[in-house]
């Protein structure tokens, strides 16, 4: 699939509209899930997805393999757009008590996160983190939480959470290299 996506991106870089539409068809489902995970608002998620694809259209020629697979590169662009929208809102609105957020609190999907990792090395590296480090990093990654929001969610002091994230990232960096 990635070879196909690389080919599509190369064609998008040459301003091939049909290729762009195929790229959208093949990837928008995954990218929309990323937007929804972070924004938890259907309309904002649509806005982020739209912005992400506009970026892909304009920057397709900047893709190269050091940025990961095409889908990884597009996921990064999408996350940044979603985070931009999230941060531009009133901070008080960022953790909303929507049904989705309630559900997430009740059955924390991050508990099951490790089972979903197929790459053995990545699996090992996340498993090697302390539970607090892993939870903090993943809350920031999957839901776009700030330090303050992670602290509120985990009911822990801000300084402690900052330290968990810093050490968690540092351990991951060493382990994944």
């Amino acid at each position: 699939m990635d070879t196909d996506l690389t080919d599509l991106i190369a064609r998008v870089a040459m301003r091939d509209q049909a290729a762009f539409q195929r790229l959208y068809t093949q990837t928008s489902g995954r990218l929309f899930s990323i937007c929804r995970q972070i924004l938890r608002d259907h309309h904002l998620a649509e806005e982020a997805l739209q912005e992400a694809f506009i970026q892909v259209w304009h920057h397709a020629s900047e893709y190269h393999c050091e940025r990961g697979s095409p889908l990884t590169w597009m996921s990064a662009i999408t996350r940044y757009r979603a985070l931009n929208i999230l941060r531009s809102r009133n901070p008080r609105e960022q953790i909303t008590d929507t049904a989705e957020a309630e559900e997430e609190t009740a059955t924390d999907p991050l508990d099951h996160f490790i089972n979903g990792i197929h790459d053995r090395k990545v699996h090992y590296c996340f498993e090697a983190l302390s539970q607090e480090q892993r939870q903090s990093v993943l809350l920031a990654f999957y839901h776009g939480y700030s330090h303050h929001e992670v602290a509120a969610r985990l009911q822990s002091p801000l300084g402690t959470v900052k330290s968990w994230i810093r050490r968690g990232l540092s351990s991951l960096r060493r382990c994944l290299s």
């Binding site: 928008s28 489902g29 996921s75």
Partner: peptide, 30 residues
């Protein structure tokens, strides 16, 4: 790029969710 590769390759928490058709229309329009 290292971090973008590693983190954005992690599995999603939920299944892919197809966006409404209007998103593509909006992209075309924009």
């Amino acid at each position: 790029w290292f971090w973008e590769r590693e983190l954005n390759n992690l599995p999603l928490l939920s299944e892919d969710s197809p966006p409404p058709q209007r998103v593509w229309k909006n992209i075309e329009h924009q």
